[in-house]
Simulated assay, not measured.
Amino acid sequence: MTDSDVSNQCGYVAIVGRPNVGKSTLMNHLLGQKISITSRKPQTTRHRVIGIRTETSVQAIYVDTPGIHESEPKAINRMMNRAATGSVKDVDVIVMVVDGLKWNDGDDYVLRKLMSNPTPVILAINKVDTLEEKQKLLPHIEVLSEKRDFAAIVPISALRNQQLDALETEIFKRLPAGEHFYSEDQVTDRSTRFLVAEIVREKLMRQLGKELPYSCSVEIEEFEYDKKQICHISALILVERSSQKRIVIGDKGDRLRKVGSDARTDIETLIESKVMLKLWVKVKSGWSDDERALRSLGYDDGQY
């Protein structure tokens, strides 16, 4: 081992939990940059997304995972679960995120999935800024501490950046010595095309609410710069039924235009360039229950 190996630390940190507890928000705020898309809808995160945080001699490679859930009605649910559970196999630290005082059967299910894993688990109690009865937090921590020998329990607010430095301290001190895997200016291993597709899907989920929760996916068909350095992007939105296509397009195309406008703003910030964005909607029956179709759309099952 070289002197530089001794002075540097580098390791993988899986962020896990049931759906909608704030895992993606937490990773984005730890990185200080938006990598994972967010919405109020459960199971917004479908892919395993890596975010890289380099702080002087320490590099933490965060792995944002889909929410672990008991119900697996379709192939997409099974693949998301495999992506989440597969991501904790070879990491150095696991951060389990829970929602304030709302421990439920879903949290118990996640904890059972981690029981045989010897990796240290830090429990992050998120959204503490929303607690109306803050005096209940300490008794709640005592109850949770009996469920597992957690490496640490840290109350946080990911959205408000509260106690994230304390959480990072607990993470960093458990990362192994070693050279950094990524350059200090790299923040993700995902391609720009992937991030653009995710931005479009985020705007869809925020616009559609409960009308079309999980039956759409986005595929980038064109990503090219012209001579004026304007980026031309064509994105295909896949749905499963004609009725869903009408919902996405909206009255006289109003909803699709709104999705495109919101997405273009974020994409231009991401790539620091003017963007011409075209959105198309296509019906592809049964795509969410077809593992071959899912893999062609870039979904993975967490296998290394």
Rank of each mutant, 00 (worst) to 15 (best):
Q9R: 15
A14Q: 02
A14Y: 02
N20C: 09
K23V: 08
G32A: 11
T38L: 04
S39E: 10
S39N: 12
R40D: 14
K41F: 09
Q43E: 13
T44L: 09
T45E: 06
T45K: 00
H47W: 05
T54H: 04
Q59T: 06
P66E: 06
S71T: 11
K74L: 12
A75T: 07
A75R: 12
I76A: 05
N81I: 07
N81L: 14
A83S: 15
A83H: 00
D90M: 04
D92L: 01
V93A: 04
V97W: 01
V98M: 11
G100T: 02
K102D: 15
K102Q: 15
W103Y: 02
V110N: 04
L111Y: 00
N117L: 03
P118W: 12
P118Y: 14
P118V: 11
P120E: 07
E133H: 14
K136Y: 08
L137V: 08
R148F: 01
A151N: 05
V154E: 08
P155W: 05
L159M: 11
Q163G: 04
L167G: 07
E168F: 10
I171V: 15
K173R: 14
E179S: 10
E179K: 11
F181T: 11
R190A: 12
S191P: 00
R193M: 10
M205W: 06
R206N: 13
S215H: 11
V218I: 09
F223P: 01
Y225P: 01
Y225H: 10
I230L: 08
A235M: 12
I237N: 06
E240S: 05
Q244F: 05
R246Y: 01
R255L: 12
G260D: 08
D262P: 00
R264G: 08
I267N: 02
E268D: 02
E268H: 01
T269K: 15
L277T: 09
L277H: 14
K278A: 13
W280M: 13
V281S: 09
S285K: 15
W287S: 11
D290Q: 07
R292S: 13
R292Y: 06
